[in-house]
Amino acid sequence: MTKHRNSIAFWAGVAIFLVAVLSMTQIVRNEYPFFAGYVILQFIALAVAWSILGGYAGYVNFGTNAFFGVGVYTAVALFKATGAPLVVQIAAAAAVGMTLGFGVGLLTLRMRGIFFSIATIALAIIIETFVMNWRFVGGAAGIQLQRPPVMAPFDSYVKMLFFVQAVLVVIAVGIARYIQNSRIGRGLQALRDDELAAECTGVPTLKLKLVACMISGALMSAVGAPAAMYLQYADPSSAFNLTYSVSALAMSLIGGTAHWIGPVLGAILLGSTQQFLAVTISSEINVLVLGIMLVLFVVAAPKGIIGLLRPRYRLRAGGKP
């Protein structure tokens, strides 16, 4: 009953959000809010994607930048080779990200958490090195991209990208919410608490971790795909920037990972603060604030913002909207 009502409320909220975003692109003239808003939406989607493996299953992925960068370069390579439209670029990036997630997961998810974390850093560096040596997409120097003409009903490419990223946020949140409320979510939560006890209670831990790693990876790469068109440029050191990893991880943990709303809150809060700080002070200070907030939260508020809002917050069987 309540579960059903929650679902209706959730999808109604999603519809209102998308309609609001779409009308904003039609009404607001100035492009700047869309430039800034795109980045915040991108971080919401990344944080939610990160939390599927990092939050629900408790495997800390330092390689958000690897998946993001792979998304960027899948789009770049595809666009340069075939001029494929944006939607195809995103779908291809998701497929590559999922494959990568499967590979990494198979390699490392049998091991203790820290090894998985280190392996994800390794992955990012190795892939970045390959891209740096890949002439077709510009190597270390990067590549300029010419945006194709914008499609109706949008009058600017940035506005369209803003809408596309909003759709990706909805997809990420929808998937995270589904997982949280399904038995996959309960299995992941069980294995995060105690992997052996979960196995002995019938949870196929390796399979669930792999599924989480693949979904999380697919989403991260999909989120990265439009970034090349957003900047009209791509280069390895910014596509594989470690800041994506810290941000996704910090936003998730600061928001709280027991519920999908946590990463969303964390990303909105930190994302807007970052936009503000980067513009007004400097990008170094902005990263410093991120780091300090992360450390403060993991030490003092282990359950994140949602834990502070509801002191005994728990993931419950029925699920919340």
């Binding site: 309960r186 299995g187 608490d193 006890a197 209670t201 019938g202 949870v203 027991a258 069987a317």
Partner: peptide, 23 residues
């Protein structure tokens, strides 16, 4: 288990639901 290994983030009922869900 010799040293109890509950799923710490769950309630007692939810601990049982894990087994019912998967096994």
């Amino acid at each position: 288990f010799q040293i109890p290994r509950p799923f710490k983030s769950m309630t007692v009922l939810e601990n049982l639901m894990v087994g019912l869900d998967f096994a």
